[in-house]
């Protein structure tokens, strides 16, 4: 078995596992679980599944490595930080102590 065949198989395997991650993580969106639980599942699908797919593509199209690496890097960072932003925005607004400008202000 040559090197090309090995990388072909590995690439198919990575793409397949990535697809499994995607479906596993996207399915909970249709269920009635809590918002945070959906975000946990989405971090599996979006971040980790997509990263596996990009690795699979990297094995398949090695001459495009600069763009694929950039995609991998951006995907990891953006997905993770978007997950954090969505989770944080879902929280009721809380005022950090010591930072309020006007302590006499009535809480709404």
């Amino acid at each position: 078995m040559g090197l090309a065949a090995i990388s072909e198989t590995a690439s198919l395997l990575l793409l397949g596992i990535g697809l499994v991650f995607w479906f596993w993580g996207t399915w909970p969106l249709l269920e009635t679980s809590s918002y945070a639980r959906k975000l946990h599942a989405l971090s599996v699908a979006d971040t980790l599944g997509s990263a596996l797919m990009l690795l699979g593509l990297l094995l398949r199209i090695p001459r495009q490595w600069p763009l694929l690496t950039l995609g991998l890097l951006a995907l990891m960072l953006w997905n993770t930080i978007f997950g954090y932003v969505l989770a944080t925005c879902s929280q009721p607004r809380r005022r950090p102590t010591g930072l309020s400008r006007n302590p006499q202000e009535e809480p709404r």
Partner: peptide, 27 residues
């Protein structure tokens, strides 16, 4: 925040009022 949120078990939700800890939602 990246390290906490990247792992599927935990998501950072911002700072505790004491400013020394993150509130982390864990599954």
């Amino acid at each position: 925040v990246f390290r906490i949120t990247l792992t599927p078990f935990t998501i950072a939700l911002g700072l505790e009022p004491d400013g020394q800890h993150y509130r982390v939602h864990a599954l």
